[in-house]
Amino acid sequence: TLFEALYDYEARTEDDLSFHKGEKFQILNSSEGDWWEARSLTTGETGYIPSIYLAPV
């Protein structure tokens, strides 16, 4: 399942991933609670993103 960003997000740590509204992600690991490891389909970068900023596509 792909997810789309509902809002912009600016990374706060080196493990976080910055993204823009409308960016799409492949989720790599969603077992860490509210922060999911994801790969951006726009940039190819991976990192942790807040799941509350996402909606399934």
Rank of each mutant, 00 (worst) to 15 (best):
W36H: 01
S51G: 07
S30L: 09
T1N: 12
D34F: 14
D8V: 03
W35D: 04
E23G: 02
D15A: 14
A11P: 05
F3M: 08
S30R: 13
L6T: 06
A55E: 07
P50T: 04
E32C: 13
P50V: 04
A55F: 10
E4S: 07
D8E: 07
S31Q: 11
S51M: 10
W36P: 00
P56A: 10
L54V: 12
T46N: 05
E37T: 11
W36V: 07
P56W: 06
L17I: 11
S40K: 12
D16N: 12
H20V: 13
W35E: 04
G33W: 10
E14Q: 13
S18R: 04
S40T: 03
L2V: 13
F3P: 00
Y48N: 07
D15V: 14
F25G: 00
I49H: 00
L41Q: 07
A38E: 01
E4M: 14
G47S: 03
D34E: 13
F19V: 06
Y7L: 09
Q26L: 14
S31D: 12
E14M: 12
S31H: 10
G22I: 00
L2F: 11
F19M: 13
R39S: 05
T46K: 10
W35I: 10
I52L: 13
D8R: 05
R39C: 07
N29Y: 07
E10P: 05
Y53D: 02
E10S: 11
I27T: 02
K24I: 15
L2P: 04
D34K: 09
Y9V: 03
E37Q: 14
S18E: 03
I49C: 04
E23D: 15
D8M: 05
F25H: 00
T43D: 02
F25A: 00
E37I: 15
W35V: 09
R12A: 10
E45P: 00
A11N: 05
A11W: 02
I27L: 06
A55D: 04
Y9E: 01
Y53I: 06
T42M: 11
S51P: 07
S51N: 07
I49Y: 02
N29W: 08
K24W: 14
E4A: 08
E45I: 10
A38T: 02
L41G: 02
D16G: 15
D34Y: 15
T13D: 11
L17Y: 07
F25L: 04
P56K: 08
L28C: 06
I27D: 00
T46W: 08
F25Q: 00
K24A: 06
W35P: 08
I27Q: 01
Y53R: 03
I52V: 12
T13R: 15
L17E: 01
R39V: 10
E45G: 08
Q26H: 10
L6K: 08
L41V: 08
K24T: 09
I27P: 01
E45F: 11
G44F: 07
Y53A: 14
G22R: 03
T1R: 11
R39W: 07
Y7E: 09
T46P: 01
L2T: 08
E4Q: 12
Y53L: 12
A11G: 10
N29Q: 08
W35Q: 07
E37H: 14
S30K: 13
S18H: 06
L6F: 04
G22E: 02
T13G: 15
I49K: 00
E37L: 15
V57W: 10
I49E: 00
Y7H: 10
A38P: 00
S30M: 15
E23A: 06
F19T: 04
